[in-house]
């Protein structure tokens, strides 16, 4: 199907980092089953470096590919860099997404932010709340 780039199809067919980290240091889940997509990201963090990352996704092809690409982009990187990952960067790394699928890359960005926030909360690390928009503000879903 020509709907997606080869990169998207590759990450969809062979998603990297699928799974669960039982003793994760931070877990983030965003999306809504009613809207048709949910992403969950598990982070293992050692000395401020993301030493391992796994994801689970319920959603369309581009949602699965976006999660896969996003995990690749932050694996082995410092937490601060993960926080800077934008949805645009995810989409670009996938050689683009169709306009009506851009929200999948937004979900990937938000899922990572949510996981980092969870890590900060668990460890009593101070942070700027403005960095973490809540899901309700996106207005993607009609439900």
């Amino acid at each position: 199907m020509a709907l997606y780039s080869d990169k998207v199809m590759d990450h969809f067919r062979n998603p990297r980092n699928v799974g669960v980290i039982e003793d994760a240091d931070g877990v983030g889940e965003v999306g809504n089953a009613k809207c048709g997509d949910i992403m969950k990201i598990y982070l293992k963090i050692d000395n401020d470096i993301i030493s391992d990352v796994k994801f689970e996704t319920f959603g369309c092809g581009s949602a699965i590919a976006s999660s896969s690409m996003a995990t690749e982009l932050i694996k082995g990187r410092p937490v601060s860099e993960a926080l800077e990952l934008s949805n645009k960067a995810v989409a670009e790394a996938l050689d683009g997404l169709p306009a009506h699928k851009m929200h999948c890359s937004v979900l990937a960005e938000e899922a990572i932010k949510a996981a980092v926030k969870d890590y900060y909360d668990r460890n009593g690390i101070e942070y700027d709340h403005a960095q973490f928009p809540d899901c309700e503000s996106c207005g993607h879903c009609s439900v």
């Binding site: 809207c35 319920f58 959603g59 369309c60 092809g61 879903c141």
Partner: peptide, 28 residues
């Protein structure tokens, strides 16, 4: 979700359809 189901079925040579939002072209 239906769209990923369709894409993977297509890889197996199966042409099918779904009523998921992602395939209906709307949000619902």
């Amino acid at each position: 979700e239906g769209e990923s189901l369709l894409l993977l079925l297509d890889d197996k040579g199966v042409c099918a359809s779904s009523g998921s939002a992602c395939t209906s072209g709307s949000l619902d």
